[in-house]
Amino acid sequence: MPTEIVDGVYDITCKHDESYMGGARYRVFLFDGDVPTIIDAAFPDTTNRLIDGIEKTGVVPERLLITHGDGDHIGGYNALVDRYGVETWVPNNLSVSTRTEGVGLDTDPDHRFSDGERIGRFEAVHVPGHTEDSYAFVDERDGIAVMGDVAMGSDLRGFPPGYFVLPPEVWGGDVNSAERNLEKLLEYEFEVGLVYHGSSVLEDARDTLEAFVNFPGKVYYETVVRNR
């Protein structure tokens, strides 16, 4: 069943793998509003569950945004286009992952976006590291950041929920860049940070992210050790 995780925003969990990483969840987010928008599309083989979840919300998506090209984020792209005729937006440097079979775009996207582009209520923020094409979407009006895979919920790694962690190295990418580039999100104001894996952070999300990025040891090193 979909869950209205904050007002007008639905978490549609398409897969829950209890055997992997403490219970990995794979989800999409559906935003109600002037232009109902779905962000990401889950796996190719979860499209029936995704569409069923959308139907249960009563919201008909008109726009699809893609955060990056991993199969669990872009796999249902074709099904959503076929079912709803959504306007599609994908990263200008989209790289479709080869790690998931059956992933591909049957129709060219309507739009390609780059860092800083406004798409309705959202601003696209390029945060490479997990993948080169990784983006987050920030809606400062309502104080919501959709993190893509630039960060994940701490409970995915066995910690208490309510915090952010980096994607694990086994999922590919450059962990150092992934951490360093999170600083870009601190330029924005948001209260809620929605993640695709693990539990989202629903209060003080920006401050929580800043505490993770600018931890005391880093601040000490940058202000004291580096300047010796």
Rank of each mutant, 00 (worst) to 15 (best):
M147W: 02
D174L: 01
F159G: 06
D155I: 10
P161E: 13
V175M: 07
A178H: 01
G162P: 05
L156W: 08
M147R: 02
A136F: 04
M152P: 04
D139Q: 03
V170E: 15
G153Y: 00
M147Y: 02
R157E: 15
V146K: 03
M152A: 10
P161S: 10
R157P: 00
L156V: 08
P168A: 11
V138I: 15
S134M: 13
E169F: 05
V150F: 06
S134L: 09
G173I: 06
S154M: 04
D174Y: 04
R180P: 06
V165T: 14
F164S: 04
D174P: 01
R180T: 14
S154A: 15
L166E: 07
V150H: 04
M147P: 05
G158K: 02
E179K: 13
G143W: 02
E132L: 12
D155P: 00
V175K: 02
V170C: 10
F159I: 02
P168Y: 03
E179F: 15
E140A: 04
E140N: 03
G173E: 04
D155E: 15
W171T: 09
R180W: 09
G153W: 01
D133H: 11
G162L: 09
V170M: 12
Y163T: 11
P160K: 10
A145R: 03
G143V: 09
G162A: 10
V170L: 12
N176C: 05
D139H: 07
R157I: 15
V170W: 11
G158C: 09
G148P: 00
W171L: 12
N176I: 10
D133L: 11
Y135T: 11
R141I: 10
P167M: 06
F164L: 00
N181F: 10
